[in-house]
């Protein structure tokens, strides 16, 4: 555990310098702190977002992700630290910021009887240089819903309309909170494609998510937040390596299997017997190693089940090492 912990620490220190090199920072957050009464929602968050990148803010529920982006949006006043968005102070310069920053909020609805086209037409009238919303509808697959009332839309359609409203002002930065939550897999993939298209037009995107897959697919860099602190800022590829640290393999061997056979493998960290089943946890490509060694011994792994570590597990891992590092 000490290894990844040190790496995380080193990465955290190195990240801002690397971003600053040759790239324009459009968002700079330094030592952000936000409390609600006695509860500290954000303890100490710092990160820099470079122009044109897709920056992910990941973390478990209640980690402080939404509060962090709400401070960036100027929706909440920080209790400490500094935020600069396109050179503006989000609270003081809120009026100007709204022209440049498109926001998709979690759990924000529209009037029940407002129709899709009316909503986009209305919202586009708020901005200096709005986007043409018709192609936006086309890309989001909502064209045939133009005259449908908001309350008659499906969850996915509402979500896509919400994304369209965040983009209708032609923003330089779009902050999207839980972008694809509640979407079916196809709609999710379509939305990812849309976001990549938006980025290709030069829009910087801040993505709040708890989907590792989403981060891997979309983000150039990711900040992992836990308990109001940035645990690590890194590329998804580097992060995924940490996430693969543990995998859990459950199976019922067709013949008795000796523990030493499995524990001899460098990838395996533990072997537990449960009835006539075996649970193996390990690192790296542990699945391949276990199946190979079983095959060489003419043992078949029946009722095989593999639990990939999800982000939540990765968090336990990373926050655990974080805590150790502080000792």
């Amino acid at each position: 555990m000490g290894g990844p912990g040190l790496a995380a620490g080193a990465m955290r220190a190195a990240a801002p310098e690397r971003d600053a090199r040759g790239m324009t920072a459009v968002i700079e957050v330094r030592g952000l702190r936000k409390e609600y009464g006695d509860t500290v929602a954000v303890e100490d968050v710092s990160f820099t977002v470079a122009e044109g990148e897709i920056f992910g803010i990941l973390g478990p529920n209640g980690a402080g992700k939404t509060t962090t982006v709400e401070c960036v949006e100027g929706m909440r006043k920080p209790d400490g630290g500094e935020i600069s968005v396109l050179g503006l102070d989000p609270v003081r310069d809120h009026a100007e910021l709204t022209q440049l920053l498109g926001v998709q909020l979690q759990e924000s609805q529209l009037p029940a009887r407002l129709r899709v086209a009316e909503a986009l037409d209305l919202y586009s009238s708020f901005y200096r240089e709005p986007a043409d919303w018709r192609p936006l509808l086309e890309v989001l697959g909502l064209t045939e819903k133009s005259n449908t009332a908001y309350k008659k839309l499906s969850g996915g359609q509402k979500q896509r309309l919400s994304i369209a409203l965040a983009l209708v002002g032609n923003p330089r930065i779009a902050v999207l909170d839980e972008l694809t939550t509640g979407l079916d897999p196809q709609a999710r993939r379509d939305t990812w494609e849309l976001i990549e298209g938006v980025r290709d037009r030069g829009v910087t995107i801040v993505l709040v998510s708890h989907f590792m897959e989403e981060a891997e697919r979309l983000c150039d860099r990711v900040a992992l937040i836990d308990k109001g602190r940035v645990v690590v800022t890194d590329t998804p590829a580097a992060l995924a390596e940490r996430v693969e640290v543990t995998a859990r393999i459950q199976f019922r061997p067709s013949a008795p299997v000796s523990d030493t056979l499995l524990t001899a493998l460098p990838e395996v960290t533990s072997v537990i017997h449960r009835g006539d089943g075996v649970v193996v946890t390990g690192t790296g490509n542990v699945l391949n190693a276990v199946i190979s060694v079983l095959a060489r011994n003419q043992i078949v792994a029946e009722q095989l089940r593999v639990d990939q570590t999800n982000l939540e597990d990765a968090f336990l891992e990373l926050t655990g090492s974080h805590a150790k590092e502080e000792q």
């Binding site: 949006e73 709204t98 926001v103």
Partner: peptide, 14 residues
């Protein structure tokens, strides 16, 4: 309650 006022706060309209 439905966050419609909140959403408007993120736009220039307010």
């Amino acid at each position: 309650q439905q966050g419609i006022l909140r959403r408007l706060r993120t736009t220039p309209a307010g």
